[in-house]
C-alpha cells in the first residue's frame, strides 16, 4: 500500500465513522435549535438504539429470515423504540422544567444521561455484547483501498436520511414549524402552532436518527457496550459544536469532518490517541471560531 492509498483508505474509514457521527450530531443540534438545551442523554439514546436493534435480531434469530428482512425489522424496532424513548424523555424530564433557569435543565439532562446509562447497564449488562454481522461480508479491492458493503450501506443510509431530513425541514409544514419554533416559540404559539408537539416531534426525529446511528455502529464494529453511548455521544456533540450548534447542515459537515480527522489521526499518528486528536481540533477551532464553522446564529429571543 503506497502512501496515497493509505490516505484514501483512512479517508474511507473516516467517512464511515463521520456518517455515524453526523446522524447523532443532528439530534443534538435539532433539539438545541428548538429548546436551547444540550440533551446529554442523546448519547444514551444512540446506544439504546443499538441495543434495541440487537434485541430484535436475537428475537428473530430462530426464524431463518433473509438478512435484509432482519435488517429492516431491527431498523424498525430501533427507530420506533428510540422515538418513543426520546418522546418520553422530553415529556417526563424536560417539558416540566422548560421555563426553569438554564442550570436546572442542564442538571436534568446530565441526570437523565446517568439514569439511562445505568438502566442500560442493568438491562443489557456491563460487558461487551456481540453484534451480529447481518450484512454479507462483501469487500472490493480498488487499487490498494478496501471498501466493504457495510461501509457503502452506512454511507447510503446516512446520506439518504440527511437529504430526507433536509427536505422535511425546508419544505414541509412540520419543518417550517420547527424552524419557526427555534426562532420564537411565543410567536409560534400565537399563530396557533402547537409548539409542545413540535418540540416533542423534534426530540423523536432526533432520537430516531440516533437509533439508526446506533444500529450502523453495531453493524460496523460488531460489538457494543453501554459506555459507547457516552464516548460516541460526546464525539457527536463535538461534531455538532464544530459545525455550529443549532445549525443542521453544520452538524452534518461537522460529523463528517470529525470522522475524517479521526481517520487521519488514527492512520498517521496513533490509533490510541485519536480521541485526544478529535477534541484537540475542537478546542483549537473554538478558539478562533467560538460559534463553530457555521454557527452564525446568536440567541435572538426577547
Amino acid at each position: 500500500m503506497n502512501s496515497f492509498e493509505l490516505l484514501l483508505q483512512q479517508l474511507a474509514n473516516g467517512l464511515t465513522l463521520g456518517a455515524i457521527y453526523a446522524l447523532i450530531a443532528l439530534g443534538y443540534t435539532m433539539v438545541y435549535g428548538v429548546v436551547q438545551l444540550i440533551n446529554f442523554a442523546h448519547g444514551e439514546i444512540f446506544i439504546a438504539g443499538a441495543y434495541a436493534a440487537l434485541t430484535v435480531i436475537l428475537m428473530l434469530s430462530g426464524l431463518a429470515l433473509p438478512w435484509w428482512a432482519v435488517l429492516g425489522l431491527c431498523t424498525a424496532g430501533a427507530v420506533l423504540g428510540c422515538g418513543a424513548l426520546g418522546w418520553g424523555i422530553e415529556r417526563l424530564a424536560y417539558r416540566p422544567i422548560r421555563r426553569a433557569p438554564r442550570l436546572n435543565a442542564f442538571i436534568t439532562a446530565i441526570g437523565m444521561s446517568f439514569f439511562l446509562q445505568n438502566a442500560l447497564m442493568l438491562i443489557f449488562g456491563a460487558t461487551d455484547r456481540q453484534f451480529p454481522t447481518l450484512i454479507p461480508l462483501v469487500r472490493w479491492q480498488l487499487g490498494g483501498v478496501t471498501l466493504t458493503l457495510i461501509q457503502l450501506v452506512i454511507w447510503a443510509a446516512s446520506g439518504a436520511l440527511m437529504i430526507g431530513l433536509q427536505g422535511l425541514v425546508m419544505s414541509t409544514t412540520l419543518g417550517k414549524a420547527m424552524r419557526a419554533t427555534s426562532q420564537d416559540l411565543v410567536a409560534c404559539a400565537l399563530l396557533g402552532i402547537p409548539v409542545n408537539r413540535v418540540i416533542a416531534i423534534t426530540f423523536m426525529i432526533g432520537s430516531m436518527l440516533a437509533a439508526v446511528g446506533g444500529l450502523l455502529f453495531g453493524l460496523y464494529y460488531n460489538t457494543i457496550n453501554f459506555h459507547d453511548g457516552y464516548l460516541v455521544g460526546l464525539k457527536a456533540f463535538t461534531a455538532a459544536v464544530l459545525g455550529g450548534i443549532g445549525n443542521m447542515p453544520g452538524a452534518m459537515v461537522g460529523g463528517i469532518l470529525l470522522g475524517l480527522l479521526e481517520g487521519l489521526g488514527a492512520g498517521y499518528l496513533s490509533a490510541q490517541w485519536k480521541n485526544v486528536f478529535a477534541f484537540a481540533i475542537l478546542v483549537v477551532l473554538l478558539l478562533f471560531k467560538p460559534r463553530g464553522l457555521f454557527g452564525e446564529r446568536v440567541a435572538e429571543r426577547a
Binding site: 409544514t173 417550517k176 414549524a177 424552524r179 419557526a180 426562532q183 420564537d184 411565543v186 410567536a187 409560534c188 399563530l191 396557533g192 402552532i193 446564529r297 435572538e300 426577547a302
Partner: peptide
C-alpha cells in the same frame, strides 16, 4: 416589538400564519 421569523422568507412567515 416585532416578532417575525427573521431567517425565514416573507412568504413562509405568512404561510405559518395559516397553520391553524
Amino acid at each position: 416589538n416585532i416578532r417575525l421569523f427573521g431567517s425565514m422568507s416573507v412568504l413562509e412567515n405568512v404561510v405559518l400564519g395559516t397553520y391553524q
